[in-house]
């Protein structure tokens, strides 16, 4: 254990909070998707920190699967963005209020 677990968890929490800020504050749906990626990365970092702490490889397995899901999510999400842009000519979430009460 060269780097203590607390350091990994601290950086992970900070990155996750930054991602939450981005999702809540930004209005460009592409930037929101990027911030979701950053939050997934923060969780991966916590998994890797725990995997290093317990000297177990299981944490790395979870990171592997999270990455796969993230790749699938980005592919479908960006396809949705392109489809919405084709119909509505906007990428700002304020303008996409069709499903709002």
């Amino acid at each position: 254990m060269v780097v203590p677990l607390e350091h990994y968890l601290g950086v992970s929490v900070a990155l996750f909070a930054l991602g939450v800020i981005g999702v809540l504050v930004r209005r460009n749906v592409l930037v929101i998707l990027m911030c979701v990626e950053m939050m997934l990365n923060a969780v991966n970092l916590a998994f890797i920190g725990f995997a290093d702490y317990f000297k177990a490889v299981d944490g790395q397995m979870f990171v592997f699967f999270v990455m796969t899901v993230a790749a699938a999510e980005v592919a479908v999400g960006l396809a949705l963005v392109v489809a919405i842009f084709r119909n509505r000519a906007t990428v700002y979430v304020d303008d996409l209020n069709l499903l709002k009460w």
Binding site: Y8, L45, I48
Partner: peptide, 11 residues
């Protein structure tokens, strides 16, 4: 780089 420091070279 942080993953490398945690001995997770493959990841």
């Amino acid at each position: 780089g942080m993953y490398l420091l945690a001995h997770a070279e493959f990841i």
